[in-house]
Amino acid sequence: MKQVTIGFLILIAIAQPLRAEQPQDIILSHALQAKQDNAAFLGFDGMRGEQFFKSQHNGGDWSCASCHTDNPAAAGLHTVTKKEIEPMAPSVNPARFTNTSKVEKWFKRNCKDVLNRECTAQEKGDVITYLVSLNR
């Protein structure tokens, strides 16, 4: 009986990564939030996400690209600490956008640095759509 229980637990542990969220799940949850924020929500746009990613906002001196570079399929470099940042595009780095709480934590932290405010669901959804659309 004990072996069966242990075997079962190991199976659950192995199956755990299979249950991980996909970028599409995270885009969908942002779409639901965006719809709630704005009844006229028309979906996400990767082009708009790219523009958002590469521009400065609210008179700030940073864009997302300041650290992640203009090519999110390549590794970035932290402007302050000069440490490497793994690529943002899931095509290159499949671990990206597979954990909602991690995604939200970093959006919250980094949006404050770049925009001096938190990002809207529309902005986040656009950016993720852009990053997901990038090929290797």
Partner: peptide
């Protein structure tokens, strides 16, 4: 702690 801008000093 709250900003990447101050990460170097925080560390």
């Amino acid at each position: 702690a709250e900003s990447e801008r101050n990460r170097d000093l925080h560390v």
